[in-house]
């Protein structure tokens, strides 16, 4: 369906570009600025905002025409529906990241030399995005039947995601400015933060797997 409409990818991509544009406008108001120390936080902020937009729309096609009921009537297990939806959300988020991360680097980080390799950056982004897609899909399913679903998803999402975001900002900071912030220790700091993020993902995905049957049927 997304291949036909490209609704989610277009809206998420455009929104992410707009967020970067706003960052750029805000920082260009001062003569000289260095966003390096807060670069990781800014990037995750853009990713979280963008993912909220996508998550809000992830069950809209099913909800609008009652297709969710057709899926629930089919002989597939509820957790399979969860993994399908979460995989879709993860894929869209990764596609958007492929566009915005190089652009973010071009706009804000082109004058610095990153401490870590590109694969370390990609791994941190993947671990963070996996948690966002998994927990976000669960929360989007919970909020899809509520009156103010957009508002409720945003209110639930950020507090629940806080431990992951905290860890992933630390991991990304280590990759971007590790040598400056934690001289000699940034690799250990990176793996510690990544481990925390991966642990959070594993626990939350297991909880989502266990709860999805009740939540989608409610």
């Amino acid at each position: 369906m997304e291949l036909r409409t490209k609704e989610m990818l277009t809206s998420m991509g455009l929104y992410a570009l707009l967020v970067l544009l706003v960052y750029h406008l805000a920082f260009s108001q001062v003569d000289s600025y260095d966003v390096t120390p807060i670069g990781a936080g800014l990037l995750w902020l853009a990713i979280v905002f963008t993912s909220l937009l996508g998550l809000n729309r992830s069950l809209v096609h099913e909800k609008d025409q009652g297709c969710l009921e057709a899926l629930l009537l089919s002989p597939i297990d509820r957790p399979v529906i969860f993994f399908g939806k979460a995989a879709g959300n993860l894929l869209f988020l990764l596609i958007v990241e492929v566009i915005i991360v190089p652009l973010f680097h071009f706009l804000f980080l082109q004058n610095i030399e990153m401490s870590g390799a590109v694969w370390m950056l990609a791994l941190a982004l993947f671990v963070g995005s996996l948690g966002i897609a998994g927990v976000g899909t669960l929360l989007a399913t919970m909020s899809v039947n509520t009156k103010g679903k957009d508002f409720i998803l945003a209110v639930l999402f950020v507090p629940v995601m806080f431990p992951l975001l905290y860890a992933m900002v630390a991991a990304l900071s280590a990759v971007i400015t590790g040598e400056v912030l934690f001289p000699g220790e940034w690799v250990g700091e990176y793996w510690r933060a990544l481990g925390l993020g991966a642990g959070y993902d594993a626990i939350m995905l297991l909880i989502a797997f266990g709860l999805y049957e009740f939540i989608i049927g409610a």
């Binding site: 036909r4 096609h61 025409q65 057709a70 899926l71 009537l73 089919s74």
Partner: peptide, 30 residues
């Protein structure tokens, strides 16, 4: 669920897919 079907006043179809694509999607699920 393998043995029951539901016809509701809601069509339970994806509006942005063609008739054939909708049936193909549910055929794959079943």
């Amino acid at each position: 669920r393998e043995h029951i079907g539901l016809i509701s006043h809601n069509p339970l179809l994806y509006p942005d897919l063609s008739a054939e694509e909708n049936l193909q999607f549910f055929a794959d699920i079943y």
